[in-house]
Design a protein around this nucleic acid. Structure first.
Length: 155
DNA sequence: GCCAACGTTGGC
DNA sequence: GCCAACGTTGGC
């Protein structure tokens, strides 16, 4: 069992969107970075915990808790010429990018990035490192427990 | 909209 | 295989 932080732009897919989806589950598509892909492909397992992070918005932060709900499979958008995520170098025989399904578990309160930066127990998070922009990053059990506790306070 | 930091591309 | 140029990310 591992823990992850995954970034989504809420204008595209918000945590509430996932809560509202059938089975509270969506395909996580559009990852186009090799390091992030390799985490998904090589290290994720069904049931791993996910911190669902909202990026590129007015108040970035953790919006809820989710879990990995499938094994990795080819990201369909790479084959779709009309998609912004289309990759002309990807083929059905040799897919380059993958998706996993993500299931929303609980929302809790919103935990803003500004608050996360103020918490010493979180200072080593990959997310908080200077220049870090990985859309999928590992989270330690200690960081996970700290954040889950914060999400569950003063609902 | 700005811009620092990072990743990718492609000429050599 | 180097590395300059370019494109992207994402907070502010």
């Amino acid at each position: 069992m591992r823990y992850w932080l995954m970034k989504s732009e809420p204008d595209e897919v918000s945590f509430d969107d996932v809560l509202a989806a059938p089975q509270q589950t969506v395909a996580w598509y559009g990852v186009r970075n090799y390091q992030a892909r390799n985490f998904m492909r090589d290290a994720m397992s069904v049931g791993d915990g996910i911190l669902f992070y909202h990026s590129s918005c007015a108040a970035p932060g953790v919006a809820g808790i989710a879990e990995v709900a499938s094994s990795p499979y080819p990201d369909a958008t790479q084959f779709d010429a009309s998609s912004p995520y289309h990759d002309p170098k990807a083929t059905q025989e040799n897919p380059r990018w993958i998706s996993v399904d993500v299931r929303a578990i609980e929302a809790g309160r919103y935990l803003p990035l500004t608050e996360m930066r103020s918490i010493p127990a979180l200072e080593d998070m990959v997310l908080l490192q200077k220049g870090s922009r990985l859309s999928v990053s590992p989270v330690t059990a200690g960081q996970w427990n700290t954040i889950v506790a914060l999400l569950r306070e003063q609902r």
